[in-house]
Design a protein around this nucleic acid. Structure first.
Lengths: 221, 221
DNA sequence: GCCGTTATGTGATTTTGTCACTGCAGAGCC
DNA sequence: GGCTCTGCAGTGACAAAATCACATAACGGC
């Protein structure tokens, strides 16, 4: 709750009449988990800022395979939306909530006004753009150059916060995160399990030796 | 030459005193072919707009492999620069001129001012952002899902304008465009040659039957 | 317990990527 | 003409990954 108030206060401070005017047009929504926020080809009408939760932005291949491009989480905005809003293109990917998510909905007109009026708002918007762009470039590098074993190891370590614990995800979901195929993930997990680094359960992976997984990642660079 | 004047006039019209002031701080540079415009890790100080020519933005792997992420050509700006400028991050990739290139150099401060002052300028900046973002997403999809034969075929057809002709590029360069390895390109070109679709020469590929190449692309979707 | 759904396991095959070379063409030089 | 250097291209062997086509296995209702 405080998150939303903070963010609103930051961009639309009480002591500025123009911004107060705009602030009134900003709405707040709560989206359930697994809800499609936008789909490929949709037109953009609003600027979305996630207050709490997580939106997964992913591309879908003709053959039904998926790659997660990036995630938009607490206090971040969806770049795609930003760019599409102004250039009036349609979404090139789809966004789906990973969990229950609260977001601010800023109408296109208000977004445009605020962008011209507030430097703080501009900074926020561009900072987000830059971050997402870096994410995407990283993703291209990973998929083009990276080995699956290393990337899987790293992903698991990241998800368990670098200490023993359980990561709940199906092989299919892990495959989407890495931009590979489910079978490849299944097989690789089996290899890690045989080496005692993890234990695989249905719908979850138990990380036993995060340190060793980190080493797998580092060995391949 | 007219290009530069047009672009300047569009964003900084003569009849606006504020913009005229900013306009004076915009400089113009000419870069030779093959010149590095920025490197990974560099800090951003200026906003670049290409007037004539082409800048290739690419990622470099640890093992020396390259992927071309996108190109910035006539009348476009480099998004990376945009975002880094405001969020003050460093470049996540490198940019190299493909050919002799003229560009406008807009200092960070001027960029910021113009962004607040001119809606036309904002539209331009964001339109570019959106385009590049789409390019990048497409690239992730291609590399993650696409088959090399199809992508190579498509690339050749694109480069020769869908009609018989010669595409001058080394196998290494083609590999970078597609995010794959040189050997793979060599082998695939050989296959196409055997089928009579192309003829390979040193440093160039002669496209003989673009229609058939297009079909290769379409068959795989 | 039975059934339908979803998740996972596996073998066979093809496509890519990597490594370690060889061969080859052209530029510049004597 | 013959050299050497250098960057480009060809190739075989092998490893990794993707794809296809299934077989199982676990769970959730009922």
């Amino acid at each position: 709750m405080s998150g939303a108030a903070d963010i609103l206060e930051q961009w639309f401070p009480q002591d500025d009449l123009v911004l107060q005017q705009l602030r009134r047009q900003v709405q707040r929504v709560q989206l359930p988990s697994g809800q499609a926020v936008f789909r490929r080809g949709d037109a953009c009408r609003n600027y979305l800022v996630v207050i709490r939760g997580s939106v997964r932005v992913q591309a879908l291949s003709a053959g039904g395979r998926e790659v997660v491009l990036y995630r938009v989480t607490d206090g971040q905005s969806c770049v795609i939306t930003t760019s599409c809003l102004i250039s009036e293109e349609s979404y090139p990917a789809e966004g789906i909530t990973d969990e229950e998510t609260d977001a601010l909905v800023i109408p296109q007109v208000v977004f445009n006004e605020a962008l011209g009026y507030s430097e703080a708002f501009r900074r926020f918007v561009f900072a987000n753009q830059g971050q997402r762009l870096s994410d995407l470039i990283q993703r291209v590098e990973d998929v083009a150059f990276g080995r699956v074993d290393a990337r899987l190891a790293k992903h698991l370590v990241d998800r368990c916060g670098n200490q023993p614990g359980s990561v709940s995800a199906t092989h299919q979901q892990l495959a989407s995160e890495l931009g590979t195929a489910r079978e490849v993930v299944s097989r690789q997990l089996k290899v890690f399990e045989k080496e005692g680094l993890i234990a695989v359960h249905r719908g979850a992976v138990e990380v036993i030796r995060p340190d060793a997984l980190t080493r797998v990642w580092e060995q391949v660079h």
